[in-house]
Nucleic acid binder design. Structure first.
Length: 368
DNA sequence: CCTGACTCC
DNA sequence: CATGGGAGTCAGG
């Protein structure tokens, strides 16, 4: 645990210091121990000690490895373990978040005080925090999440033939991209190819560059560029849509979601390359992320209405961008499962089906 | 109050 | 030339 980690860090550093201070840590790593300076921070030009830097240094040195572990534990403790119990409302015995409906640029909701849209799930230790979220006695939690909703929206918007046929056939989209992009020889390591294809698929939605892909996959920029070229060679419709969307945004000055939500993108006409590049990535991402936000909002209304009309007492507890968490009496679970899937899948009719995964458990950790 | 770090989709 | 979209919270300074 944390105190043991702290001792080991002081020993590796050869001195005691405030581990939470990026400034002090930078001085220890790069001035006292003379580790290689891989990156400076953007605004202040100080030594970067971010995750990517520490991970690279951790290949050769002990201290950065310990710091990474310390930071993970410290964050989980301060943000969740220490903070959440104090926010239990004595009247209800529950934590109540605020959902903000006008805070984001794309139409997503945000959640605050506390943010229940960023409860840990990826790390083993972090996941344990989810097990503290439980339903009332006699009830169960139901989680319903849209499968690959943003890539399905991309398929719809771009009308790309390969993407559409993959989703219509119910294929694993990352596997399909792997088969489209990589050679027979490369595909012998199927798992690695799928992992890379997944990074590419998501990256496309964010306007990924060869440099960014190279960084993420730990490969050369040239190799990354050839993957991207291979992707666009197979997904011609996606390339055309990206180009068309940027061109149209440049002309009109705004982007629009499937349901008409507008986001002004003034920088798209900037002469500053940096500003304009950010604007172009925003212009392709916003209609995708924003349409997904539109769809789940429609789904929330449909689910709520349908639960009421069916005289069910199940309640929507949370929305986490592509997921709804519902609390239902055990006796209602089978009905609610079916109802939620249907209402979410029918919230919008696209050129590809919307698919929803439903899971049930007696706590939020065991739901997947 | 800003920055940089960590958490999520 | 810089280099993946959208958020919130925490600690340090």
């Amino acid at each position: 645990h944390q105190s043991e980690l702290t001792r080991r860090i002081y020993r590796a550093a050869g001195t005691e210091f405030n581990i939470n201070s990026a400034k002090q840590l930078g001085e220890i790593l790069f001035e006292k121990l003379n580790l290689p300076i891989l990156k400076k921070t953007r605004k202040t030009g100080s030594y970067s000690t971010d995750q990517a830097v520490l991970e690279e240094l951790a290949r050769e040195y002990e201290l950065p490895r310990l710091i990474l572990e310390y930071r993970q534990v410290a964050k989980l403790k301060s943000t969740y373990v220490d903070a959440l119990p104090a926010l239990i409302n004595p009247a209800t015995g529950r934590i109540h978040t605020s959902f903000n409906q006008t805070g984001t640029a794309t139409g997503r909701l945000s959640s605050s005080e506390p943010n229940l849209q960023n409860i840990p799930i990826r790390s083993e230790l972090g996941r344990l925090i989810r097990s503290a979220f439980v339903p009332e006695k006699g009830n169960l939690l139901i989680s319903a999440d849209y499968s690959q909703v943003e890539l399905r929206i991309l398929a719809h918007l771009s009308e790309d033939e390969v993407l559409i046929s993959a989703f219509q056939a119910g294929e694993d989209i990352h596997d399909r991209t792997a088969r489209e992009v990589f050679t027979e020889e490369e595909l012998k390591d199927r798992a690695e190819c799928r992992r890379r294809a997944k990074v590419i698929n998501f990256g496309i939605i964010y306007g990924l560059s060869a440099f960014g892909l190279a960084q993420t996959l730990g490969i050369s920029k040239e190799a990354a560029q050839s993957f991207i070229d291979a992707y666009f060679n197979r997904y011609r419709g996606v390339r055309a849509w990206l180009d068309r969307t940027i061109e149209e945004t440049r002309r009109t000055g705004y982007t629009k979601t499937l349901f008409g939500r507008i986001r002004p993108i003034p920088d798209i006409q900037s002469k500053d390359f940096n500003l304009r590049s950010f604007a172009e990535r925003t212009a392709v991402n916003s209609p995708i992320q924003g349409s997904a936000a539109d769809i789940i909002k429609i789904a929330m209304i449909r689910v709520h209405r349908s639960l009421r009309e069916s005289k069910l007492s199940a309640k929507i507890l949370l929305q986490v961008h592509d997921e709804l968490v519902i609390e239902a009496p055990e006796a209602e679970v089978e009905k609610v499962r079916k109802l939620v899937r249907e209402e979410m899948e029918k919230a919008a009719t696209l050129k590809v089906p919307l698919k929803v995964e439903v899971n049930v458990a007696d706590n939020w950790m065991d739901m997947k």
